[in-house]
């Protein structure tokens, strides 16, 4: 229990709404198969393109599949693929970043130049180029996105690694003759991973957008696996007659991304002082009111 406390204290610093949305997304994603009320891929053309009913709370799509179940399952698809992308991207990024931060010199210059180039090309273009060469598929998508994503975590982990390496206790360890391996695995790597994880979480929203975008273009998650972007593009031809099927997956995805973006904004350092909230102001006023005022002048 004691170990939980600092984690909870950390969480308390972030906006509650962001935590709720992200929590909901992760919970839905994890337990989707048990939460979905119906089989998401069971087709029934007799009940196709229907509005909300007792049987189908959010209606059905053009093939008669239950929209609610598909939306829930899509959270699972999204969570798994975003998780895979981020884990692979972070592994590459942290590895490159810590190596650059540990070695400095030309290794650092070279790696960071690669990172700069990677960051200057929109991730969608990088990912599409890879898919165009290798051919579409689930793992191609994951790898292509990871390839487009690692420069960001590479840059962050390099910055963290450099600051860790310049700390006095690392210098002391070196003087004491600790092996490079011990410094790298014992101190540099654990410290960097922790810091990069936080940024990576905030970046999960953009990754979810990328997965959905590739699926929308037909180059990511392939049917029949439900995915928000792909559900949206499937329903697009019926936009005029059944806009609900387009809007629902769009809203679900937007909500998840908003959650991550609020978190990201909270994490980004806020250098500008904010004016007091009304409650704080009242508190300070009563504090000051208790102070005596006396005229010291004779």
């Amino acid at each position: 229990m004691n170990k939980l406390k600092p984690i909870l204290a950390q969480l308390n610093k972030f906006p509650r709404i962001a935590l709720i949305v992200i929590g909901l997304f992760v919970a839905l994603g994890t337990f989707a198969p048990w939460l979905a009320p119906q089989d998401p891929s069971a087709q029934n053309l007799l009940t196709a393109s229907q509005g909300p009913s007792v049987a189908h709370w959010l209606g059905t799509d053009h093939l008669g599949r239950d929209t609610l179940s598909r939306l829930i399952l899509a959270a699972n698809t999204s969570l798994v693929s975003v998780g895979s992308v981020l884990i692979i991207a972070m592994t590459i990024g942290i590895l490159m970043g810590t190596i650059a931060g540990y070695h400095r010199g030309w290794v650092d210059d070279l790696l960071m130049r690669v990172v700069d180039v990677g960051l200057s090309i929109p991730s969608l273009i990088t990912a599409l180029a890879v898919i165009g060469i290798v051919g579409p598929g689930y793992w191609t998508m994951v790898l292509a996105l990871a390839l487009a994503w690692w420069p960001m975590s590479g840059r962050i982990s390099r910055a963290v690694a450099v600051s860790i390496m310049s700390k006095p206790h690392i210098e002391a360890l070196r003087v004491l003759g600790a092996s490079p391996w011990r410094i790298y695995f014992g101190h540099l790597l654990p410290g960097t991973i922790g810091a990069v994880m936080v940024y990576a979480t905030a970046d999960a929203g953009t990754a979810a957008l990328a997965v959905a975008t590739l699926s929308f273009l037909g180059l990511g998650i392939q049917p029949p696996t439900p995915e928000w972007g792909q559900m949206l593009v499937d329903a697009l031809p019926y936009l005029e007659s059944d806009p609900r099927q387009v809007i629902l997956p769009g809203l679900a995805l937007t909500a998840a991304v908003i959650g991550f973006n609020i978190l990201g904004e909270a994490i980004a350092l806020n250098r500008v002082p904010r004016p007091l909230t009304r409650r704080m102001l009242a508190m300070r006023r009563t504090e000051v009111a208790g102070w005596s005022k006396e005229n010291s002048d004779a």
Partner: peptide
Amino acid sequence: VSNLTVDLLTAKSAIRPVDGVS
């Protein structure tokens, strides 16, 4: 200026940097 008192209220604290100055 007579008997000027200034209280500053910030998010972190309240301070009185000027206390009854003339």
